[in-house]
């Protein structure tokens, strides 16, 4: 049994419901209890960075949570004083990390008791694993993965475990380029550029509260649509797929959908201001753009 291995769990908050976060903590405690008892981790901390204008937790509330759960984890809470977005928020939280592994989670996810153990499993025997991703329920992510090795194109950071060394090796998320979406796709691909694997771990499950429309389709807000469209353009550029970029831009410009037009304009402004990211993967070995998706999908949502 290895001892001394530590885990730093981090989550970026933005106007979340405190009750749901507390429920998430309760599930984390159980998973932490199991992971510590199994000797997978020796020490676990939970770190929240809050980008909301009004802090979600008071100092007293954090003290109370620590009093309640200190036996299992240490809870740290930082109010960012501004909305840094997902990528920058996570970079900031990770900057104070000295643990061996980082687990990035959405603030409202609920873990199964064996999720931390399951997520660590690929790292036990394979030193080339750069990210292990949990399976989300009840809506499972449709992206393709190898059903023998678990290898996949990229990992969603709704719940993903990364060795700190790997996080630092790729300098974390590209916060200058991505605000809300695709920071995890870009991060995963840069991890793969460094010859690490991204592993999907189907037995490590988390409940991620999503709902379907009455027609059974995925519901997205206009803000989500906008940031996702903006990120799509930046991804195509950064990963040297000018053909894809051109196609998307043309489609957006000819669209009558506001957020598409807005995203296309924002991209042009960034280009004119010389603020586009450095291009990577010129020989297209890593970046996968398949049918308007990042990588192959098993089905569409």
């Amino acid at each position: 049994m290895q001892t001394g291995r530590s885990l730093h769990i981090q989550s970026v908050l933005y106007n979340n419901d405190q009750e749901r976060i507390t429920k998430s903590i309760k599930s984390l405690i159980r998973a932490a209890d199991f992971a510590i008892n199994k000797g997978v981790f020796f020490r676990i901390s939970l770190n929240y960075g809050d980008g909301s204008s009004n802090p979600i937790f008071t100092d007293q509330e954090i003290i109370k949570l620590n009093d309640q759960y200190r036996e299992y984890i240490d809870i740290h809470y930082t109010h960012f004083n501004s909305n840094l977005g997902s990528a920058r928020g996570h970079n900031q939280l990770a900057s104070s990390c000295s643990s061996d592994y980082i687990l990035i989670i959405n603030p409202d996810i609920l873990m199964a008791p064996d999720t931390l153990i399951g997520l660590f499993e690929p790292f036990k025997t394979n030193s080339k694993v750069g990210i292990a991703e949990a399976r989300q329920l009840p809506i499972e992510h449709p992206k393709f993965y190898n059903i023998k090795t678990g290898e996949t194109s990229w990992a969603s950071t709704a719940c993903a475990m990364i060795p700190r060394e790997v996080f630092e090796l790729v300098n974390g998320f590209d916060a200058d380029t991505f605000f809300l979406y695709c920071d995890d796709v870009d991060f995963s691909w840069r991890v793969r550029l460094k010859n690490y694997q991204v592993i999907y771990q189907p037995s490590a499950v988390v409940f991620h509260d999503k709902t379907l429309s009455n027609e059974g389709s995925w519901i997205t807000s206009d803000a989500e649509n906008y940031y996702s469209a903006e990120a799509g353009l930046l991804m195509a550029y950064k990963w040297s797929r000018m053909d894809v970029l051109e196609g998307i831009l043309k489609y957006f410009e000819n669209s009558n959908i506001d957020y598409y037009i807005k995203a296309a304009n924002a991209f042009k402004i960034r280009k004119n201001d010389g603020k586009l990211p450095e291009q990577l993967d010129g020989d297209h070995k890593i970046g996968e753009f398949v049918n308007n998706n990042y990588g192959k999908m098993r089905f569409s949502l």
Binding site: G118, E121, P122, A132, R135, E140, P142, Y145, N146, I147, K148, T149, G150, I199, Y200, Q201, P202, S203, A204, L212, E215, G216, S217, R298, F299, S300, L301
Partner: peptide
Amino acid sequence: VQTTYSPKTSRAVSSFLK
């Protein structure tokens, strides 16, 4: 499904069928 790192579990292979 059962990968190298997971016990026997399951995976979705279709979208939602109403």
